[in-house]
Amino acid sequence: MNLPLFGKTIVVTRAAGQSSQFSYSLQNYGAKVIEMPTIEIVPPSSWDQLDHAIASLSEFDWLILTSTNAVDYFFERLASQLKDLRGLAAIKIAVVGEKTAQRLRQRGLQPDFIPPEYIADAMVVNFPESVDGKKILFPRVETGGRDVLVRAFSDRGAIITEVAAYQSTCPRIPDAKSIAVIQEQAANLVTFASSKTVKHFCELLHQTIGDHWVESLKTVKFASIGPQTSKTCRALLGRVEIEAEEFTLDGLIKAIVAQSSLL
């Protein structure tokens, strides 16, 4: 077989229900894919903040959405409050990443701004107008997200309203099949699409295998979607062999294929 990942076993650590396209793409390159959900997307502990923001949508100048989860939970809650898209008529929408933009377009809306790089930091550097005095609504993950956007926009004079739109938690029950593959040292590569997937991966292994869980990772390589995730890999796992140059899932696949000789 000429496929670059033929004979390689790759563990995908995305949220349950969100890994299918990524896994399918890896399989097209010949990989055997084992899905190990390390993220569970659930509603926030309270809807109060988001509901209050939705009730006063007309007060905001910008809506910032940094993930498909933020899009889904924001608009589903908007609909549940019997509000329609006309409430967003006067608000500009900024998104991070083409996947987030696609999800927004599926709901009939066109983003007003997408930064050239698929990272939140690029949002601040390339923002199309001065944010001094602007009111910005930022629906986001309840805990564990980076604060770079909030700090940077606040420093530039923006009035940021952060609201919890969803929560990403560690699954309570580890996936037995994927844990067994790790324990048996049968995996060639583990992929990480966020720092939180790295943290939860470590938690699940410790929970299942015990204090010596790191020993089961001696022969496996790690692939990261970008610098922040790589930083977490190095902090918790001691290393990372592959990092995407373009900080997207497609970019991660390209990096894995390009460096398949490492596996």
Rank of each mutant, 00 (worst) to 15 (best):
P174N: 09
L205Q: 10
L65H: 00
I54C: 04
V181K: 09
A55V: 02
D121A: 11
T13A: 02
G17H: 00
L88E: 08
R86D: 15
S230V: 01
F22C: 05
W47T: 09
V124A: 12
L78Y: 06
I136D: 14
S216Q: 14
R107K: 14
A90E: 15
V95Y: 00
E35G: 07
C170R: 10
F127T: 06
S168R: 08
L82P: 07
P37Y: 04
L82M: 15
L204F: 03
S56N: 15
F22K: 03
F113T: 05
A193C: 09
I225T: 08
I173D: 15
M36W: 10
V181M: 12
E241T: 08
V131W: 07
N69W: 01
V150F: 08
L26S: 01
P139V: 01
W213Y: 11
A165T: 10
E40P: 00
V141R: 01
F222M: 08
A187Q: 05
T68S: 00
R105S: 11
A158S: 06
D51P: 05
M1S: 14
D211M: 04
G144Q: 08
P171W: 07
G226S: 00
A165Y: 08
E203P: 02
E162L: 07
A16K: 14
V95D: 00
I209N: 06
Y118S: 10
Q49F: 06
I160S: 14
M36C: 09
E162W: 05
R86E: 13
N188Q: 04
S46G: 05
N126A: 11
N126Q: 13
L204T: 10
T208D: 11
T100G: 06
A258Q: 15
Q102F: 04
Q18P: 00
D250P: 03
L104T: 12
A101C: 02
I54M: 09
L57A: 06
H212D: 15
A244Q: 01
A152E: 14
H212R: 06
L109I: 15
A235S: 13
D84A: 05
S178Q: 12
R239P: 06
V125F: 10
I182A: 07
S260M: 07
L236W: 02
F138W: 04
V11L: 12
L237P: 03
Q81T: 15
R172M: 12
T248M: 01
K8I: 05
L50D: 14
S168V: 03
N126H: 12
V181L: 05
L263T: 13
S67Q: 09
K134S: 12
L78T: 10
T208H: 05
C233P: 02
G17R: 02
G251F: 03
K196I: 13
P43I: 09
S261T: 14
S58A: 12
F138M: 03
L5G: 00
V125G: 09
I225R: 06
E162M: 10
H200Y: 09
S56L: 12
A89I: 05
I173R: 14
I54G: 04
A187C: 11
F153D: 12
D48Y: 04
D48I: 06
L205I: 04
A70C: 07
R107P: 01
T169D: 08
F75C: 02
R239A: 13
K92Q: 13
E215R: 11
F22V: 04
Q81F: 08
L85K: 15
S45Q: 14
H206A: 12
D147S: 11
N2W: 04
S80K: 14
K254R: 14
I119R: 09
D72S: 12
T219K: 10
D61R: 02
R239H: 11
N126G: 02
